[in-house]
């Protein structure tokens, strides 16, 4: 039982990170109906930015309180990563809006390849380890929870709350939902569609940057190719939850996190990804639009 709860906690931590990334996929998909394949690499850029900021802080100051350091890392990562995603949208996706559906998918894949290789070229291909930022571990009744995990869950919940407020309670969120339903009509009603889409990309990137910072803090290492696996997992999570649905993305992320940690704990760690992907396939067979996705009715 303790072992189970322990895995539950691990899964929750992992799932929080996946969920944060998955939101970026789902939001972009919701608003312009494309898979932003570069989103995983945006996450990696976020983690890398946090790493560089951490090193700068270390070089400039003798010691910085860890909370402050984390906060600065997160904020800078959010800003820079948003700039990346904003630029990518403007350069690679906007000119193709409304054309052939596969064209933006291909540019997105191209951007993903270009981004990870850009980081490889500029920062080198090796793993980048940092000393542990937070190392406290609390033990309750045989279950150990590290402070890192607590931070991850708290940050995730806080961000989700802010995010939920933005999407559901502000004019911006309303504009986003309007664009989702009917972009042309939204434009006719005076919504600046381009701006709304840009903001969507920025929001997605900011969440991915936070996920990247948390990832760096949790694992203590990052490498240029780190965008792919979490990216695919988060994408899987978004689809599992029902792409286009925000709660679905979080739910999907948590599910993938749980599946992975449970599978590694009880079966074999080698096949944890196989398990996650297989469960995706099985769920989609029975719920072709994901768990919380709107079923697509075939109106004839």
């Amino acid at each position: 039982m303790q072992y189970f709860v322990q895995q539950l906690i691990n899964g929750l931590t992992l799932g929080s990170i996946y969920g944060l990334i998955a939101i970026g996929y789902t939001m972009v998909y919701g608003i312009i109906g494309m898979i932003n394949f570069a989103h995983g690499d945006i996450f990696m850029v976020g983690a890398f930015t946090a790493l560089i900021v951490f090193l700068i802080l270390g070089a400039l100051f003798y010691s910085v309180p860890i909370v402050v350091a984390l906060l600065i890392m997160m904020i800078v990562a959010m800003l820079l990563t948003s700039l990346y995603n904003w630029t990518i949208e403007k350069v690679a996706y906007r000119p193709l809006r409304g054309s052939f559906r596969l064209a933006p998918l291909i540019t997105a894949i191209g951007m993903s390849i270009a981004l990870s290789n850009f980081v490889q070229v500029t920062q080198g291909p090796r793993n980048k380890p940092i000393p542990p930022l937070v190392s406290q571990v609390y033990t309750f009744d045989g279950i150990s929870i590290s402070l890192k995990q607590i931070i991850i869950v708290i940050v995730t919940i806080t961000l989700l709350a802010i995010f939920w407020y933005l999407v559901n309670r502000t004019a911006l969120g309303r504009a986003q939902r309007a664009c989702e339903q009917d972009r042309k009509m939204a434009a006719l009603l005076g919504i600046d569609v381009d701006r709304t889409i840009s903001i969507t990309f920025i929001m997605g990137a900011a969440l991915a940057a936070v996920a990247g910072t948390l990832f760096l803090m949790y694992y203590g290492v990052v490498v240029f190719s780190d965008g792919f696996v979490p990216g695919v997992k988060a994408f899987t999570a978004a689809v599992l939850g029902g792409i286009g649905s925000l709660p679905g993305a979080v739910l999907g992320g948590l599910l993938i996190g749980f599946i992975e940690s449970m599978w590694s704990a009880y079966f074999s760690i080698d096949y944890k990804d196989v398990a996650a992907f297989s469960i995706l396939a099985i769920v989609l067979i029975f719920l072709p639009s994901g768990i919380l996705g709107r079923p697509e009715v075939e109106k004839v």
Binding site: V232, V239, S268, D270, Y271, F277, A281, L284, G290
Partner: peptide, 28 residues
């Protein structure tokens, strides 16, 4: 067989997952 009912991006992710599954099985 499993993906027949899926459309668009759902199909895309399942085929991607299938490719990864095959690769992971080959590794493991």
């Amino acid at each position: 067989f499993p993906v027949l009912r899926l459309r668009g991006d759902y199909l895309a992710i399942v085929t991607l997952a299938f490719g990864e599954i095959i690769r992971l099985v080959l590794i493991n």
